[in-house]
Computed example of a mutant assay.
Amino acid sequence: MPRGGARAVSGPAPDPNALRRERKTDAAGWRTLPADGRMGDPPAWPLTEATEREQDVWLDLWEKPQAVMWEELGQVLEVALFVRTLAEAERVDARVDIKKMVRGYLDSLGLSVQGMLRNRWKIAAAAPTAVESVPAPAVRRSSARDRLKVVPSDEGA
């Protein structure tokens, strides 16, 4: 393992809300991805025949917001390799290095929080639904007097 010096992903991840914004790396800006995810059919599976698990993960991944960028950047093969590696890593007897590869794919494809920050991707706020936009009725709080319990006196005893 190398000692000292900078690493490709060393240091804190970029923060879109940072107070200091004059860094050279900020010139690229942040990309906001649609909260609804990518629309349309997924690309054709580029590897040898997919297992049922691989097919399920493939379909799910191409509906995510990050899939908009994968398509734009031509990462179909990288996503397929991630799916295949993930399916292998899920096995009980999976090797540790395979599990580490999955973590690397999660970051590079922006599927982890750290990966989203490093790629400078943000997901847009979801539009409120009709149910969310109706304010809840105000709850009437009881007064201190209402909370007091009346205790009968034993005057007749």
Rank of each mutant, 00 (worst) to 15 (best):
G11L: 07
D93T: 09
A87C: 15
A157H: 02
L106I: 04
A8V: 12
A28P: 01
V68E: 07
M116G: 06
A144S: 07
R118I: 11
A13M: 14
D93A: 04
P135D: 07
D97T: 12
P42R: 01
E52V: 15
G11M: 06
L73I: 04
E54G: 15
W45F: 00
A138Q: 10
E72W: 04
L73D: 09
S108T: 13
V68R: 04
E155P: 08
L77F: 07
Y105C: 01
A44T: 15
G5E: 05
V150Q: 06
A126F: 00
L59V: 08
T32F: 08
S108V: 14
R31Q: 06
A87G: 10
S112Q: 13
T48K: 12
N119Y: 01
A124I: 12
Q75K: 13
S153F: 02
R120C: 10
A144R: 09
Q75L: 15
V150Y: 11
G156E: 15
L117G: 07
A125M: 07
L148I: 05
G115E: 08
T85M: 07
L111W: 03
A27R: 14
K100H: 14
A124G: 10
M1D: 13
E155T: 14
M116K: 14
R141C: 11
A18W: 00
P137N: 03
K99G: 09
E88G: 08
K64G: 02
D107K: 03
E132F: 06
A144F: 12
L81W: 11
A80P: 13
L77I: 15
P43E: 03
D41A: 12
E78K: 09
R147Q: 12
E49P: 03
R118S: 10
E63Y: 01
D154K: 07
M69K: 03
T48G: 07
E22T: 13
A13L: 13
G5P: 10
E49F: 02
Y105F: 14
L117Y: 02
P128D: 03
K64S: 13
A27I: 14
V92W: 07
L61K: 04
A50E: 10
A126G: 05
T85L: 08
N119C: 11
K24N: 08
A144Y: 10
I123D: 04
G40Q: 06
V139C: 01
S10F: 09
P14S: 08
G104K: 00
P152D: 14
V96K: 14
W62R: 08
V134C: 06
V139N: 02
G37E: 03
R21M: 11
D107H: 05
S142E: 15
W58V: 01
R145D: 14
R53W: 05
V102Q: 01
K24R: 05
G4D: 03
K122L: 15
N119M: 04
E54C: 13
R20K: 09
L81N: 11
G40M: 05
V57Q: 00
A130Q: 12
R23H: 10
V57W: 00
T129A: 00
E132K: 02
A35P: 14
A28D: 08
G74Y: 08
Y105W: 10
D26V: 07
V92Q: 08
R31D: 09
D36Y: 03
N119D: 01
V57A: 06
E22K: 05
A136F: 06
G4C: 01
A87L: 06
V57T: 15
G37K: 06
Q55N: 12
M39Q: 14
P135L: 02
V92A: 09
Y105T: 08
L86R: 08
K122F: 06
L117H: 11
